[in-house]
């Protein structure tokens, strides 16, 4: 589709609209730096939120070391490692998508963002298989646990943390996939350009953060003996 075929006044990925910054800002740069600061603050709240569960996990790990050691053997390290690789690649495609948007290459950006969503989907699929396998064996959090193969006292608590931590993380992955879908539609509507790519960059921040959390979760849950 050539630029000439675009009717005047209709914007799309190839022909984005000019950006008008908010009336309370001095410039587009002022708006952008404010939005970035807001996003960093939001990331801080996420760190504290997830940090609290990490603290809880570490406390119980110190309290019941044998139970946590035995229980962690039930996790599938290979699938965990596969998911780690998937998320690292998705972070790379995200970077490529954001850079493309910054340079005004919206077509390429959409391609990279779709790849990122796809990888996020793969992550969730692997997680789905891990979860259903556990449920099948009777491995549930805390009071619902009825797995015959591992009867060490307090082992169910390990799985409480496992499900809560990976579950909250997976929830963030799904939210991230929705946000990427949202920015793709904005690019397609011509709302993202070389002059205005704030939403793309901020969703990128978010996605990297979610990946980073997994980088901590994987060794903590799957590897630490």
């Amino acid at each position: 589709m050539s630029h000439a075929s675009v009717p005047a006044g209709k914007y799309n990925a190839d022909n984005p609209a000019p950006h008008h910054f908010g009336h309370h800002f001095e410039s587009a740069e002022h708006e952008f730096s404010s939005a970035k600061q807001g996003m960093w603050l939001f990331m801080v709240t996420e760190v504290l939120m997830i940090g609290a569960i990490f603290v809880g996990y570490l406390l119980f790990r110190l309290r019941f070391p044998e139970a946590f050691h035995e229980a962690h053997k039930e996790l599938n390290v290979k699938l965990g490692a596969l998911n780690t690789v998937i998320l690292i690649i998705s972070s790379a495609t995200m970077v490529l998508g954001v850079t493309a948007a910054q340079r005004g290459n919206n077509r390429r950006s959409i391609g990279m963002l779709i790849t990122t969503i796809f990888l996020g989907g793969c992550f969730c699929l692997v997680k789905y298989f891990e979860y259903t396998h556990k449920f099948h064996e009777g491995i549930f959090p805390g009071g619902l646990y009825h797995f015959e193969g591992l009867t060490v006292p307090h082992a169910p608590l390990f799985f409480s943390f496992y499900f809560v931590m990976t579950g909250i993380h997976a929830f963030h992955v799904v939210v991230g996939m929705c946000l990427i879908t949202w920015i793709i539609t904005r690019i397609k509507r011509g709302q993202i350009s070389k002059e205005f790519f704030t939403p793309v960059e901020l969703v990128g921040f978010y996605w990297h953060f979610v990946d980073l959390v997994w980088i901590f979760l994987f060794p903590l849950l799957y590897l630490l003996g």
């Binding site: 119980f60 959090p141 805390g142 499900f163």
Partner: peptide, 23 residues
């Protein structure tokens, strides 16, 4: 800085009811 800690605590408390996490 403080409110997120309450948020996650309340989520865990809801999970106590729904999933019996037992933490």
């Amino acid at each position: 800085l403080a409110t997120p800690v309450l948020a996650i605590t309340l989520v865990l408390l809801i999970f106590e009811h729904v999933f019996k996490v037992g933490i």
